[in-house]
Every structure is written in structure tokens, then in C-alpha cells.
Design a protein around this nucleic acid. Structure first.
Lengths: 246, 246
DNA sequence: ATACAATGTGTTTAATTTACACAGTAAATG
DNA sequence: CATTTACTGTGTAAATTAAACACATTGTAT
């Protein structure tokens, strides 16, 4: 691939795979994953951040990530980071976007794939022994290290969109939750206020909540009923949605 | 990074960036981009494919892609591929997803970032001199090389979703188009039939089409009026859409 | 002149979304 | 134990949006 830079496109492409098969030259692009780990606690949407260990960004917070191993699937790398940090497996994890600006990392070329993860903060014992690791209210997340602010903003926006179209939010709640919990969650994610009666009507009309015939405990007021989400029923019904609107 | 594989997570992460800064070792993951180039012609949604040059996949069609250069932004690499193939710049291009299964490429580890591109087939003189490069009706795209079928399916689904929420479709049409053109486009992308009157009502009520006071030419029937899309007006109005439904 | 194949337009009905108020219940207080 | 407090739980009317549906008009081709 000596003449890589100056061949015409088709020639170049045709010779690519020949080169690739031999791996004569590696382009030196490092690949990493970054996990944007969301949690819901104290009626607020939180994100898990770690203090940057680069002097350039000392004092700043950054996302949790690591390089991808040569023989590791991308998703597996994201799961690995997640498990290392939270001790959790079997959590919601979704690829969001890949960030590959040449100078995004001060140490050299690193392309990173961002993953959004939603975890239930009750279900885990975080390794927050490490006092460099903290939950942050998403409303106060600013000025992250690297291009992590941009990555975070992208993930939060995608979460806001997707939570309205898919039952992602339940990953952030305990298995049993009240409708108030659910509404608080949506209000925290979307950063808006919703009408309580219409919110209930909406969810009841979807007919995807299972009434557990149990009540909240230890609340300082009239307890609400508890529900769980009917994932099975949701899995069966495929909604093919058509509605042009922009 | 001698002990990379057996350190605990936090230690490992802390040592990562030290290693990175020196680039002592490259993990040997190649990075590529693949462009899913859509066009609209003969009232059909088309995708541009090239014959695979790998013997393993001989006879099969594949997407257009190339390795990313070490000092090239990801988006720039996608633009480069696109320009080489179509001669077009200033076209719609959007990152869709990244595919990184270890064994997705027979020649070794290659992670690829998929980009969706929408081009106006009138506006370009394709280098289809190369008879290995062809437009294919998306309905008949099956059994692509590598994992390209999966990538293609992902991109088509994303296009179907996004075209309903954003004015992407106009990138596939000439600047001047009739409402029938527009409806044909949506029907081709979504693979459904739409009611003509409701379709018109919908678009007129958005008030984003500019009536050009011109008529179609050379049609073998009553000509329709021509419109263009009001990108400027669309850019100004930000719709913050809330509607939980799944 | 006529047949043809489109364009262009409106209304009625159903479905969905929004706005909005009051009674009921458990816990906490004195 | 009576009262206050702070929630839960429910229904209806109005407005908006989406869906179904038919006929007159215009230019082309014969």
C-alpha cells in the first residue's frame, strides 16, 4: 500500500482488502468504548462519572471507558467496563454513536464508541469505595474532560427520545414501582412536568402494566399501588408506526 | 501494558492512558467506514452496491467502504468514499451505527462505522463506467457480503424511522418536485401505500413547501404543480416533541 | 371530439390528546 | 381520637388530529 494516498478511489478500494488480508501495516487508530451509565435516585436522573486521570484534564470528570481488546466484540468491551465499574451484568446496554475526531484525545488518535447503559441503583453495590467515582445529577453535568460533554449530551438526547418510544425506562426502576415513581422518572428524564391523570390514562391504556395487588411501604402518606412492566406482552406486539411529522 | 489482561478493572483503566500516551503497542484493530448510499429513481428506493473482490464472497454484492486514515476524521473518511464513488460533495451523510464483531471480516479484525447517505440521482454523473458498481432496488437486496446485509438492514430501518420525523427525504428528490413525487418517495421508503388526499393535507399543514408556480413538464397527463422544501423555515422552528407511546 | 390518466380539493367520522376538580385513604400530629 | 396533611385515584368535556372517502378539473393522446 505504498501509493495509498494518491491512487484514484476505485483502485485504492480494490487494493484495500489485499493489504488488509496481510495486515502489513496497521494504521495506528486505537479503539475504545465509553459507557454513559444512567441511574435514577432521589427522583433525579443521575450519571456515573469518574475523575479524569490526565493532567491536562485534572479536576474534570469523564465517562467510564477502556480500550477494546483485539479479540473482543465491541459490545463485550462495553459490558466489561460496565461490570468492572458497577458489578452488574444483565443490564440494559445500547450503542449510541461513535466519536472519531482526530484530535479528540490528547494522547493520540483514539476513536470511541459510546454506549448508553441504564441501571437500577437499588440492585447494585457500586464500587464507590473508589472516591473518584460518583453519581452526578444530569442537570449539573458540565465541562467534562475530552469530548465527553458532547458524548454525554448526545446520549442524554437519545435517551430522551427513545424513552418515549420504547420501554427503556423500566431498567432504571425497581421491579415493583408505583405510577408516581414512573411519572417521576419520565419527568426527570424529559425535564418536564406531566399531568398526573393523563399520564396514568396513557399507561393504563397501553395495557402493559401488571397490577401486583401490593402497596408501597414506608411512605409518609397514602401508599400507592405497585406495578411491574409486562415485558413478555410487549415483546409480542410489534407496533409498526407510521406518522410523518416534523 | 504487559499485565493488561489480568489486572483488576480500576487499575487497568488507570494505567490505560499512560500506555496510550506512549503508543507502545497498537491493538491492531483496523477501522473502516461503509457508506449506504440511497437514491430514488423510477419511483423506487435504490442502494448503491459494488461487487465484492474477496474470493470468499465472490459474486456477492457489498457496500462501499474504505479504511480510515490515521489523520482523518471519521466523517471525512465517509465523505471521501462518497466523493470517490459518486463525484458528489455536499450531500446528506449521517452516521448510523458501528459494527465490531470480532470475526465480521475474514481478513482480520476490522471495526466499521456505517454511514447513511442520501443523494439525488439526477444531480450526479456516477462513475458507473465501472461495471462492478450498480444501483439495486432495496426490495431485492439480499445476501450481501460480510455482515453487510445486517448493516444494510439497520440503515434502511433507521431511514424509515427518521424520514418520518425529519425532512431527510428531500435529499433524494430534485430541488423542484411535485407532491406526487414526494408521495412516491415516502411510499417507496416506507413500503406502504398512503392516501393521496391525507398526504397532501399533511404536508400543506406543515407549511414547509414553497409553491414555485411552475408545472411539471413532459408528463403524459395533467401536470402537477412544483414545490421546493423550505429548509430555512424548518431550521428556525424547533419542535420539542413529547408523546410517550410504545 | 373523445377517452384517458392523472391532479386538486372538502367533509364527515372516529380516535386521540388536553385540560381540569374532587373524593378517598393512610400517616402524622396534637 | 379528632384533625390535619399529603398524597392516591378517578371521569368528563373540549379541542385537536387522523382516517375514510368521491367527484370535478386539466392536459395529453388518439
Amino acid at each position: 500500500m505504498a501509493s495509498r494516498e494518491n491512487k484514484n478511489g476505485i483502485q485504492q478500494l480494490k487494493s484495500r482488502q489485499v493489504t488488509l488480508s496481510g495486515f502489513e501495516k496497521n494504521y495506528g487508530i486505537e479503539l475504545s468504548v465509553d459507557c454513559i451509565i444512567f441511574g435514577f435516585d432521589e427522583e433525579k436522573l443521575k450519571v456515573l462519572l469518574i475523575r479524569s486521570d490526565l493532567t491536562k484534564y485534572s479536576g474534570k470528570w469523564s465517562l467510564l471507558g477502556d480500550l477494546v481488546f483485539p479479540s473482543e466484540d465491541l459490545d463485550a468491551a462495553a459490558y466489561r467496563v460496565l461490570k468492572q465499574r458497577t458489578g452488574l451484568s444483565d443490564v440494559y446496554l445500547e450503542q449510541v454513536s461513535t466519536f472519531g475526531t482526530v484530535s479528540r484525545h490528547p494522547a493520540g488518535r483514539v476513536v470511541t464508541v459510546a454506549y448508553c447503559s441504564l441501571i437500577n441503583v437499588q440492585h447494585h453495590k457500586l464500587n464507590i469505595l473508589d472516591n473518584e467515582l460518583h453519581w452526578h445529577d444530569v442537570k449539573s453535568v458540565t465541562d467534562l474532560a475530552f469530548d465527553h460533554q458532547q458524548i454525554f449530551d448526545t446520549c442524554l438526547m437519545q435517551l430522551q427520545k427513545r424513552v418515549q418510544e420504547h420501554p427503556l425506562g423500566f431498567n432504571l426502576l425497581p421491579k415493583k414501582f408505583s405510577l408516581r415513581d414512573l411519572q417521576n422518572l419520565y419527568e426527570a428524564i424529559l425535564n418536564i412536568k406531566l399531568d398526573r391523570r393523563n399520564f396514568r390514562k396513557k399507561f393504563f391504556s397501553m395495557d402493559l402494566l401488571i397490577d401486583l395487588d401490593e402497596m408501597e411501604q414506608d411512605v409518609p402518606h397514602r401508599p400507592g399501588k405497585l406495578y411491574k412492566f409486562n415485558f413478555e406482552k410487549y415483546g409480542k406486539k410489534k407496533k409498526s408506526w407510521v406518522g410523518i411529522d416534523f
